[in-house]
Design a protein around this nucleic acid. Structure first.
Lengths: 342, 342
DNA sequence: AACACTTTCGGAAGCGTTTCCATACGAGTA
DNA sequence: TACTCGTATGGAAACGCTTCCGAAAGTGTT
């Protein structure tokens, strides 16, 4: 039924150009040892007949795949999508094909590394936003596959990330500078890797301690990642005897949830209570949320560049590249109002 | 430098299992004509030695690629990311590999179809969220590549979508039911395909007309897609002599921008003015926005299923599948307050 | 007991490249 | 003029699999 497009093979091209098959191949692949005129003739014939090399055959003969796998936990989230966009853009310009593997839950992830669907399918793997476990990494390495992480970190392979501690300090220092002393923290635990402790929390404790502020355990809440969780945690904060004057959320989306709670309570963020997040997620701009900006797209770009080097066999100087973050002030933060500050 | 992993080929497995190469192949590919015990033995040996077929060789021999290309304009947006998640999940379960092509601007897109990077690389192409132009489509078809669209539409190939007209009517009818008569519309034009007129606008006009309400051109604003644009358009609406009591935005993100403007003006959505969007984007939940829900993940799943059928050579009954949408009531809509209703 | 199937199996051919090797041809060199 | 070398070129071998074909062995029928 399906009309098969006319297939032109290398042999056809060679014959039509009146050269040998070897010469044709060399001409097409830009290898040297071919007379200029010969090459021109081959190229012309090839173009004329819309010849395209068969990737399968080429790779079978060459031994490499020209493909890279992107392993991502969640694609529909801004952060991950942006990183992938960045990766994709530079990888494609390098003439590599990008294979997508979404591994939402532990099960998917386990399957991915167990079945090695990537085996012999890719030259490299980019892990986006999570940490590879040791056996997983070994597995990949034993297959001769390069590994790079974007938006995650590890001691075992190169990665691009932001400095979570520093970013959190930026947030906390801003709140402290504004004069807040009663600051809450909404910790978000990644359900995919619950045991992973973020460097964002230590920043909170140390910032307070350095300012001589007593830590109040009642002001630290944690829950799974997500806006709804932020909303819930905020509700809890509003039901303690002396609610905070400012809230530091680990993620903008959590902060957005908290903001909804505030609004429902008739409170105005930035007026009655200050709120700061991390990410500069688009929602931050649309809800007037002060935040610490990071640029996931750029992280993807950087990771891809690093990968390209690795693939070329070059040595990479920095195994870990930290991308900058910056404070973006919007309407959700302000000095504490007198009534509440004391 | 790079330690080449021990390669186990089919021949090795066959020898180790004490069978012929043909039998080994059949056993591994689950073809019939192999005794159960023989198959078991082969499988065991294969597993033991972590054997995985070489996709290149397999495909070279078979003639198909086992790969599908996903062409997506924006990955970092919720809608597109979700569709891709849906596609990815079912495609992978069908043992197909997913190749990702992000074509942000017209240039990328042109390059993609011009250079045919997909040629002989994929069996099918899924276009996510935009319309293929005629020459592009022909090009693909002439290569014997199947086409399916998710979240876009076309008369020329199968697609999954939502009924934009119906969804918009749901939104408008809700507003009208609540008693609003002065309803504005924030049209969003897709910068990628500016000439494409959405079915969302006609729904607005017809709903009003059917209710005997005079169309007021001052209440219809349009601009490029995005939250910032929504904010700007809302500002404009607040500066006309008699602002609307309700606003219908083509997208939740546009509505979110509008909401920010309202808040900055000291107005409360759902109290002073009603606001409704379309999508049920996560931001809608976090901002208490009433909306018409669509499920992009499901659209991806459905599109992938359809593609699978096509790939199997089966006939597809419905060239166009419309997925349901539903009204989700949140805090941003309410009957008009008396002062404003008249 | 002979015959016709059916099931299982082994191996050769072929998929479309790349690459290595042998050959041919000129151009320098002594 | 004879000899050496480097550059072009053709073609075979190899890449690792699927599939086709014929052989072998088992089953059932008359």
């Amino acid at each position: 039924m399906q009309e098969v497009p006319t297939k032109v093979t290398l042999v056809d091209v060679a014959r039509m150009a009146g050269v040998g098959i070897g010469t044709a191949s060399r001409a097409l692949s830009n290898a040297k040892g071919v007379a200029a005129t010969t090459r021109a003739r081959v190229l012309e014939v090839a173009a004329e007949h819309h010849y395209v090399v068969s990737p399968e055959a080429s790779r079978l003969a060459k031994g490499n795949t020209g493909r890279v796998a992107l392993v991502v936990p969640h694609l529909s989230r801004w952060f991950f999508g942006s990183v992938v966009e960045g990766l994709d853009s530079v990888l494609h310009h390098a003439n590599l094909d990008v294979l997508l593997y979404q591994v939402g839950d532990q099960q998917d992830r386990h399957d991915f590394f167990e079945q090695l669907p990537a085996r012999r399918k890719v030259d490299a793997v980019v892990v986006v936003g999570f940490q590879l476990e040791d056996p997983e990494r070994k597995r990949l390495e034993s297959m001769g596959v390069q590994i790079v992480a974007a938006g995650g970190q590890s001691a075992a392979y190169p990665y691009i990330h932001i400095d979570d501690y520093a970013a959190s300090r930026q947030a906390m220092d801003h709140l402290l500078y504004l004069g807040h002393t009663r600051i809450a923290m909404l910790e978000a635990v990644d359900p995919d890797q619950p045991h992973l402790v973020s460097r964002r929390s230590p920043a909170y404790y140390e910032a307070l301690t350095e300012h001589g502020i007593q830590i109040d355990p009642a002001l630290v809440l944690s829950g799974p990642w997500g806006g709804e969780q932020g909303a819930t945690m905020m509700s809890r904060l509003l039901s303690i005897p002396k609610p905070p004057t400012a809230v530091f959320a680990h993620f903008d989306e959590v902060a957005a949830g908290a903001m909804r709670t505030l609004r429902r309570a008739g409170l105005q963020p930035g007026r009655n209570i200050s709120l700061i997040g991390i990410d500069d997620h688009p929602i931050a701009e649309l809800t007037d949320l002060t935040t610490i900006r990071q640029k996931p797209f750029e992280q993807g770009v950087e990771a891809a560049r690093m990968l390209l080097k690795l693939l070329r066999g070059e040595q990479v100087e920095n195994q870990a590249v930290a991308m900058p973050t910056e404070l973006v002030i919007r309407g959700s933060t302000a000095p504490p109002t007198t009534r509440e500050s004391r």
